[in-house]
Amino acid sequence: QVALSRTQVCGILREELFQGDAFHQSDTHIFIIMGASGDLAKKKIYPTIWWLFRDGLLPENTFIVGYARSRLTVADIRKQSEPFFKATPEEKLKLEDFFARNSYVAGQYDDAASYQRLNSHMNALHLGSQANRLFYLALPPTVYEAVTKNIHESCMSQIGWNRIIVEKPFGRDLQSSDRLSNHISSLFREDQIYRIDHYLGKEMVQNLMVLRFANRIFGPIWNRDNIACVILTFKEPFGTEGRGGYFDEFGIIRDVMQNHLLQMLCLVAMEKPASTNSDDVRDEKVKVLKCISEVQANNVVLGQYVGNPDGEGEATKGYLDDPTVPRGSTTATFAAVVLYVENERWDGVPFILRCGKALNERKAEVRLQFHDVAGDIFHQQCKRNELVIRVQPNEAVYTKMMTKKPGMFFNPEESELDLTYGNRYKNVKLPDAYERLILDVFCGSQMHFVRSDELREAWRIFTPLLHQIELEKPKPIPYIYGSRGPTEADELMKRVGFQYEGTYKWVNPHKL
């Protein structure tokens, strides 16, 4: 086992960053958080920038500027975001240094004079007029057009580079997404736009490419001749908990499936790229999406959770019991969808996408189930092999396979070949997804960000279904809070070829 401390991990990262040409360590950078008073800024962006600063992973002359409508001070920003920093008493001095680099400007999102004030403020910072500028839009999409237009007109660096990070949702359907994309691309070049999907920053999602293309053993079996089906799962054990009003506007397909799960599907299904260059990788992902037809209604199961009468606390409440959810809402909190990649490698292999709230566990994984062994000599005792990439929690890679049961006879039983990170790298604290992705933006690497043509294809696949749901308002199937979801989803999976045995229990190697 390799035991690495946080300091050692960050030392390795620093070495990698400083050796590259793309990370300008000594240049002045300004990180501007648009929507600095909001939840995302408070819980994710400010803490992430602090962790990067604490670990010495930001360029040395980096300033952080918050911008929002609320009249706040840096002290206010500190008060609301610091509880999420997880700072230790030993880091007190470092924390003071961090907040000394912070400033805040209040202004409207659609007022040109406010942006001119913001620009004057940035120019007044040390070497601010020639600094590289990175704008993070932690804002609702309704203000994107006004904000990007004003940034472009008043706040661009004339000497350094300018980059803009856009948070999902990128529209509600193909038409609104196209409108937003066309607007942003009329102001910024594609190499300046970073559409963030934080799932692409997760260690195991990034590991998929290495697993596939750096190991000879997987190449020959990664196709329709050997793989019976692919299941991509995202499960949350909690409901909307008072935030249903926002969720109800989008629903589970827009929230998770059309982005996170579809991105994971691309990494499983794509061909080997010409290189690890950002556009070479994204070219292959677009090719996969172009091979997927629009979702067919007979390959869809929609569910909505109801309270568990035997549960406790939140578990007793259904989705419609959330006071922020519109009365009688038919918005799905669970969806199972089957897609097919219609190309030579994957023809006929079902890709089953499942996601839901208020389920029995927290889990995100990719599961490849292989065909049955031909010419069975073990009297149907063999179960199908599976390769599982567990994204969260407890990152893991393992192969479910058959071995001989101890004893006199040739009785096979299920076991696993474990390729888990935790076994080799004991207690290594890896940077989280937002840390990686923000560092990628500083480096100018777009590999783990969504390109406009990729986004367009993703919406093309799901828009007809979303429009049909909005028009017909089908009643989702009720499922109990804390269950596996509607049984109809299991029946759909069985119908397209997935075999669920229920006889195997994964042993978490992190707890051995």
Results as ranks from 00 to 15, higher is better:
C382T: 11
P393G: 12
Y425H: 12
P323I: 14
L419A: 06
K405W: 10
N259P: 01
L368F: 06
L492S: 00
R495D: 15
P486W: 06
Q304L: 00
P309W: 11
V338P: 10
I477Y: 14
G497E: 09
R362Q: 12
R390M: 07
K473W: 10
L466N: 05
H467I: 09
D490Y: 08
Q468I: 10
Q381R: 11
D372E: 14
V391W: 03
K405C: 13
I469H: 11
M257Y: 06
A315M: 15
P326Y: 07
R384T: 05
D418W: 04
E342V: 10
E395Y: 03
A433I: 03
R345F: 10
V373F: 05
A374L: 14
L289S: 07
D280N: 10
E472S: 13
P464D: 11
D453I: 05
Y305P: 00
T333I: 03
D279N: 10
N277A: 12
V300L: 14
L265N: 00
I438C: 08
Y481E: 02
Q380L: 07
I352T: 04
F334T: 02
G313Y: 11
K357L: 02
G311T: 11
K272P: 10
N423Y: 11
V286E: 10
I438S: 00
K426Q: 12
D432M: 07
L430W: 09
L430M: 15
F334R: 04
D418S: 08
I438P: 01
M493V: 15
Q381N: 13
N277K: 10
W459N: 00
P273W: 00
L419E: 01
P431H: 11
E470P: 05
R362L: 09
A297Q: 10
P406G: 06
A396R: 02
E457R: 06
S445G: 15
Y319G: 03
E344D: 09
L261V: 10
V391D: 04
G422T: 15
K473L: 11
K429G: 15
G422P: 09
C382Y: 13
T331S: 12
C382K: 13
V341N: 03
E488W: 05
E344M: 08
M270L: 10
K400C: 01
Q296M: 11
S483E: 10
C291Q: 09
T403Q: 08
P406W: 05
L455I: 00
E454K: 00
P326I: 07
T403A: 12
V341G: 02
V325M: 06
V341W: 03
Q499Y: 13
Q468R: 14
E294V: 12
E386H: 02
L262H: 03
A489N: 06
F449V: 04
V295N: 08
L492P: 03
C291Y: 13
A458H: 06
E416H: 07
E435S: 11
S275T: 13
C382Q: 13
I352C: 00
L455G: 06
Y398N: 02
A269P: 04
L439W: 12
M264V: 08
N299Y: 10
G497W: 05
Y504E: 04
I480R: 15
L466G: 08
P486M: 04
R354G: 03
S452L: 07
